[in-house]
């Protein structure tokens, strides 16, 4: 397989873009997580976040969170005008500490979920969702 000079440049550019992007997002993501945990460390285990890799429309993005034993799960979207999305507080009648909903994402960004466990510890997870620009959108 051979590439023309132009193709090689394009690939290089794309790689560079991919390499620089996460660093910038990671910073604000960790700040947002720290904002919820009050600076306490959050485990990467014990929480799951399901979100599409690519959302067809940022208006309605299906997401699901699950954190067995959690008291509450806070969901944030760092790339929105305001990062708050929802806070799920689980009562004694909840069977498993999980919930699904549909959210708005202003653009490609990290969706973050932070669980507060019964013992006061935290678990956090984040996932990048690419939000596509509609073709016509008419």
């Amino acid at each position: 397989m051979t590439f023309t000079r132009r193709e090689t440049l394009a690939i290089g550019g794309a790689t560079l873009a991919v390499a620089t992007l996460p660093g910038k997002l990671m910073a604000s993501t960790s700040d947002l997580i720290a904002g919820v945990t009050g600076g306490a460390a959050a485990s990467a285990d014990g929480i799951e976040l399901t979100a599409p890799e690519i959302a067809e429309n940022g208006n309605t993005v299906p997401v699901a969170v699950s954190a067995p034993g959690a008291v509450a799960i806070t969901m944030l979207a760092g790339g929105n005008p305001t990062p708050g999305v929802a806070k799920f507080t689980f009562g004694p009648g909840s069977a498993e500490q999980s919930a699904s909903t549909r959210i708005r994402l202003a653009g490609t960004q990290d969706v973050i979920a932070i669980a507060e466990m019964a013992d006061g510890s935290f678990a956090a997870v984040h996932k990048t969702v690419k939000v596509t620009i509609g073709g016509c959108g008419g």
């Binding site: 208006n59 999305v85 507080t89 909840s94 699904s100 909903t101």
Partner: peptide, 26 residues
Amino acid sequence: FNGTSILDVTLEPAISTNPYFQFEAV
């Protein structure tokens, strides 16, 4: 359920039109 809390959600404007929730209850 019969007065026992199952779920209490705080919603922000980032929740889509026609808010939808799915969850598990005992």
